[in-house]
Write a protein that binds this DNA or RNA. Sequence first.
RNA 1: GCCGGCGUGGCGGAAUUGGCAGACGCCCGGGACUUAAAAUCCCGUGGGAAGUGAUUCCCGUACCGGUUCGACCCCGGUCGCCGGCACCA
Length: 822
Amino acid sequence: MKQKYDFSTIEAKWQKNWEETDAFAVYEDETKEKYYVLEMFPYPSGKLHMGHVRNYSIGDVVARFKTMNGFNVLHPMGYDAFGLPAENAAIKNKVEPARWTDDNIEEMTRQLKQMGISYDWNRTVATCRPDYYKWMQWIFIQFYNKGLAYKKENPVNWCPSCKTVLANEQVIEGRCERCDTEVGKKELSQWYFRITDYAESLLENLETLDGWPDKVKIMQKNWIGKSEGAEVTFQIEDYDKGLDIFTTRPDTLFGVTYMVLAPEHPYLKDLVAGSPYEKEVLDYVEKVQHMSDIQRSAATGEKTGVFTGRYCINPVNDKRVPVYISDYVLMGYGTGAIMAVPAHDQRDFDFAKTFDLEIIPVVDTKDPEIDVYDLKEAFAAEGNMINSGIFDGMNNKEAILQITAHLQEKGIGKRDTNYKLRDWLISRQRYWGTPIPMIYCKDCGWVPEKEENLPVMLPTDVEFTGKGESPLSTSKEFADAVCPKCGKPATREMDTMDTFLDSSWYFLRFCDARNDKEAFNYEKVKYWMNVDQYIGGVEHAILHLMYSRFFQMALYDCGLVSTREPFRNLLTQGMVIKDGKKMSKSLGNVVSPSEIIEKYGADTARLFILFASPPERELDWSDAGVEGSFRFINRVYRMVYEFTEKYGNGDADHSTENKRDKELLYKMNATVKKVTEDIDERFNFNTAISAVMELVNEMYKYKEGPVNEKLFRGAIEAVILILSPFTPHVCEELWRQIGKKTSVHKMKWPGYDEDALKKDTVEIVVQLNGKVKKKLDVTNNISKEELEKTAMSDADVMKMLENRDIIKIIAVPNKLVNIVVR
RNA sequence: GCCGGCGUGGCGGAAUUGGCAGACGCCCGGGACUUAAAAUCCCGUGGGAAGUGAUUCCCGUACCGGUUCGACCCCGGUCGCCGGCACCA
């Protein structure tokens, strides 16, 4: 054994060994309990960053720990390899996207292996390879056949910089989530997935996800945005159709003083045709159409709109109310029309003030500060009904139910539920994605490509103009197809799929990655799914995690998988920051994993990143802290080196000859217990590591005195075993150096001896009025009465109590005695 | 605006069921080893006061208040920071 901790030789040696022995390959085995741990696969941008290192280090600890605890552990890795950067690199550097991506995948795989992460590389996937996107296309067709995919002309979010459409989820505060450019509107015919069909399931099932952080569940809940209320039909005067509106406040129906349509409302053109209001209305519509969402919502409170010249009749009181259009009503939600109750809705109130419209209160307040007939702002709180006919005097919560029932009875309305969630726009006008396997035939319309013709290959003879046309249309041959239905010449769809589709089922492909007959085998998926522990950044709380849930449900309904939810437990790791700021090139505070690995080794990098902070919190990178982790590994290495030099190899046991031995044995067992619980129950890797540090500190002190060789050897073995998920290379090396023939990774996780954890005496605290005054060693587990008696008969305690009146004594066994005195 | 989360030494962070606040690490200081330095090992390290000294006392978990024998932890309010959503009827 070398005296010096030579990390680069050790790490290279064991990485080679693990690769040659295919050490982390797994197979379905019904006799063993399975455990599926998955980290979110990366986009192959070129090199790993610290966020990746953190993510994969966390996953690797879990994987190795569960393996040592007897589970059959699936721990795969792959690449989310379609996407814009490859295409932009192609435009900029004239490199083919496939080539650029492959090079990056190669480099990142090398780095992952250098980290010593225990992946089963036989299962790796890259979503840009035909053996993956073939099945992506196949799944698309299953969804199409089930009616879950459809094409529709609609105003869509358009990023002028990325030159493509975006899903609602990809628009962040009106800007593109990728490039931060302001998103505009464009009328386009695009493919959608009917995710709204699953709105209720996606919402309801959140309740069952006990292993998910509340934060993520709340974010998804808000995104789905369920509202319960009523749909009410208002008759339009001199018109053959009624106007349907949705409201969550049917109790305010008597307070309606006007109506508002969205500028995109389908009745609008017809309603104003030939009227003196037509020009002004159409001008307003024209203006709104050219505004982005940012502009449209920029002046919140500043309401604009136009009167249509039309009137509606309020079905509950026959009141005649004017109809306006305004951009504060959105076509995409509810029915695209609202009843306006300015007294009880702030937006309606603002509009009414601007246009000098009537404000009628229908809910009174008991607050003497507020006069409902002279409101400064809308009154949204609870109260009793007024101006509402037979409902007057009723509490408004009750009135919601009563009025809804009334509407239902009269046939002018019904209970209704709306969601903010919109259908998922999945077409992209980009090259580097999965081609949508649909063919347009003049006679048959849209027809899916035949299964035997899959995959629809991405053509290579394309131009990257970056002009917003689908690049696939520049291919000479791609467009030409034969209608799968009638056999006549037809045209292929030129758009590709949103890359979020690729990542919505990769965890299923990992269960059966090399299958060339199916997307995945049902039985294999049944064995491995669900993912027991999913780990990744919280930035995916809505997009990826909701799309994947939708896929899983849809695939379940297609009979292709056996569970409705994909991820049982979710850990959202915090960001890696430096000097209080996000690591970024522009701030110049980026620390690259490769420089750390070169200087200290992968084990040190892993240990530090797990030690510095609990996984869900932000992690402040500290170069001095890395030194500390490196020192600790050296300290362990040196301890094992010195011991084996002196005693050689041999057997270990737990024999104790004296008090010191007993204390060491106690510490060893207590540490194994703590580390086990910290990893398994709480993911508190930082405290697990600090516990091992404490044990090692104690071992250093112990070996200054007489050493019980077998006991100390047992402690060394325990340290190597419990540290091995964190620092696998050095532990593997040390394990062999103490004479073991089998990989430490294949060893059984050490148990702990509850008997050794039972101390003869425990230290208890004596408090005076809640303040610690004295510590006493008392027999373990003595009763409350005995404890109190022991404490009260202690000489120092008696001295403290001289001339004091004892009011009360609280004794908590094995913890404390609190004496309350005057 | 609405919905979440967080606030503990010089720093990262511990305190797992309401029971010793500050584990472990970093930084810093002292000592041992060395011709010397590095490395290593050992000791100290929240703030303040008193004492030659072992030690003793007071203050202290953003702020104000409450419940309790006892509060970083529970309750009410205030301030600050961070995250998500945002004209969703």
